[in-house]
């Protein structure tokens, strides 16, 4: 197995799938300003995915392009974590999903900046500025909604309880994660986890939300075993390239 290729795809797939989910809000945001805010996050993530797919294609060296990586791989080939493919639900649920991922994404990129792989380090450095804003945005909304009205509190607490089961996977090292860490290219997920835990505990406290105590966790995304939702995402996202192979703008 080409671990560097696999590792780059893990990071890229997270960004693309979450970016695609957020793009579904385009034209449907609760108000115009938040519609634009969510699609801005989406564009940041799709941009990160592009840089990573370009690098993945180069690492693979079989003449595939970034578009092949995004549009012509099947569900089992996608290595994103289950959290990012979960449905948008209402605005509160989208925020909870975003917050849980941002709280991981920021320390992840911070550590990846020190990767021995220069390209990954450079992509991490560039992405870090974007992700810093993402976490700020989603944290503030967690607080506003959690410490808001009775209804907003109920909705985000419910979303938190439902999405919590997808959080452990973020820190469960795949064989690729372990191999890359050993080579000084990958990130130590244990260190990322402790950062994540303190961010989440702090924001939930301020937001007056209850941290779920359930230990029942789902995983499989990094190995290509996905929830039912990813297939629908890919069906929509890849439709054009599948029906009109090679179509370009």
């Amino acid at each position: 197995m080409n671990h560097l290729l696999n590792y780059t795809l893990q990071i890229a797939d997270n960004a693309l799938i979450l970016g695609h989910r957020l793009s579904e809000w385009c034209g449907h945001g609760p108000i115009l300003e938040q519609d634009i805010a969510l699609t801005n996050l989406s564009l940041d993530l799709v941009g990160q995915a592009r840089s990573l797919y370009q690098y993945a294609a180069k690492v693979e060296g079989h003449g595939r392009t970034e578009d092949d990586m995004a549009y012509l791989r099947d569900e089992m080939d996608f290595k994103n974590v289950l959290l990012v493919e979960q449905k948008n639900g209402d605005f509160g649920r989208t925020i909870v999903r975003q917050f849980l991922f941002d709280a991981y994404h920021l320390p992840f990129y911070e550590a990846l900046q020190r990767s021995h792989d220069e390209t990954l380090a450079a992509i991490a450095e560039k992405s870090l500025k974007e992700v810093t804003y993402h976490l700020r945005y989603s944290s503030e909304w967690m607080i506003r909604l959690g410490d808001g009205t009775e209804e907003s509190h109920r909705r985000v607490q419910t979303a938190l309880d439902e999405l919590w089961r997808y959080t452990a996977e973020l820190f469960q090292p795949s064989a690729t994660d372990e191999a890359m860490l050993a080579e000084g290219i990958g990130v130590d997920l244990g260190a990322v986890k402790s950062r994540w835990e303190s961010t989440v505990a702090e924001i939930l406290r301020v937001a007056t939300l209850q941290q779920p105590d359930s230990n029942w966790m789902q995983n499989g995304g990094k190995a290509g075993r996905h929830t039912e939702h990813l297939g629908y995402i890919l069906a929509e996202m890849q439709y054009l390239q599948r029906v009109h192979p090679g179509a370009e703008w």
Partner: peptide
């Protein structure tokens, strides 16, 4: 101009709407 619930959100909305 834009709509926002508080000053923090107003700055962030302004960032997203007017400085992209």
């Amino acid at each position: 101009s834009l709509h926002a619930a508080d000053e923090q959100m107003a700055i962030e909305n302004a960032r997203d709407v007017y400085t992209r």
